[in-house]
Nucleic acid binder design. Structure first.
Lengths: 206, 206
DNA sequence: TTTCGGGCATACACGTTGTATGTTGGCTGA
DNA sequence: TCAGCCAACATACAACGTGTATGCCCGAAA
């Protein structure tokens, strides 16, 4: 079974078509409002193909969420490495800029609906946590740990701090996207987020 | 149609029974995993009664979430007024204690599953926001506005700040409840939350 | 007492999910 | 090269769950 045969390409193509169709529909109208019939129609296959590639509808959703989350993670490390080239900035500024980059990435519509809204309800917190852990949360925690180790922010338990900051960013992105005036919402939440981070620098709590 | 007749009592009783049964089941296994047949069996009525009192299953969920959220709001104002009796504390300490009280209230299992996990996915953000606004978020915003007005915390846009803090508290409660060691998780997140708030006091920026 | 409507039970129609079964086309070994 | 075999689908079916239409009953008002 050569992995690069034409047949293998077809297999990967149908799977990709399913993922793409499901992603577009899930992002547009939500998990429960989209039936499998609609998905396979858009992907120009049949339900048989769907249930051949995925155990059930939730399993398809998990795969979709994985790709969406991986996309975000990719954008993050991309910006991160790009910024590392001009690496005159210290850990503090790296973290500060990273948070804002994070916020920008979370503004993606697909990401919000699939990962932030439907994800927890569809997958349950265990599976959801596992996906978030490897796509983004781990990165944020690394930044924070480094910042704490170098004394750039106050000594706080890194694990809960990372979770809380991630939730902050997520909520900020939702607030912006749903605002009637996204421009000022972006400015205000960005500023507030930055101010929260600034407040974590050492020497504040007497 | 006297509102206090025996018949009216029966009507209210069946409605309450439906709310109670739905709440228990939704909290235990989530919205989609629970069918209406199971709900009415537990409430010892029929599906006819359910669809007489509520437009559809989502409408029943909305009513359940409203009661759960109202419960939390009730506990909050209760603690708040109790603390106001001994009101030597200033606005700052009131806010600080209020946040911790908030956190404690969010630890309720029913609240987490129904309001925080299923709520956004089932109701959509518009209906969800409306419910959260009147049960808790409004209160938090009032505290913050007062704290800002009196110069207890730095001048930040109150509206997004309230949203962000609410998300922070919600995530903290989920983190604690799902932790293998809730005691230390509670201590750590409580401390982190308090530290974030402390960082918002004036005189930290530049 | 009769009637009238709210409150609820029953029955049905519909869509949706998951599974079981059938079919096809390419790889593979003799 | 060809027989057979299996992955990759397509099709058909069974089970379930929701929402609605219909019917019944009882309390209240006239």
């Amino acid at each position: 079974m050569p992995a690069d045969s034409r047949r293998a390409e077809h297999v990967a193509d149908t799977r990709d078509a399913l993922l793409e169709a499901a992603r577009a529909l899930f992002a547009e109208r939500g998990y429960t409002a989209v039936g499998t019939a609609e998905i396979v129609t858009r992907a120009r296959v049949t339900r048989g193909a769907l249930y051949h590639h995925f155990r059930d509808k939730a399993d398809l959703f998990r795969a979709v969420m994985r790709t969406v989350a991986a996309e975000l993670a990719g954008r993050l490390v991309e910006e991160q490495t790009a910024r590392a080239e001009e690496s005159t900035a210290g850990v503090w500024d790296q973290l500060r800029n990273g948070i804002q980059t994070y916020l920008g990435a979370c503004l993606d519509g697909d990401f919000q609906r699939i990962v932030l809204v439907d994800g927890p309800a569809v997958l349950g917190h265990a599976a959801w946590d596992a996906l978030v852990e490897e796509h983004g949360l781990g990165l944020l925690r690394d930044w924070l740990r480094q910042a704490v180790d170098e004394g750039q922010i106050d000594a706080l338990p890194v694990d809960p701090l990372a979770r809380l900051l991630a939730a902050l960013i997520a909520e900020a992105s939702l607030y912006i996207a749903r605002s009637t005036d996204p421009a000022t919402a972006r400015e205000e939440t960005g500023r507030t987020l930055d101010r929260v981070l600034l407040g974590l620098r050492p020497g504040v709590g007497e």
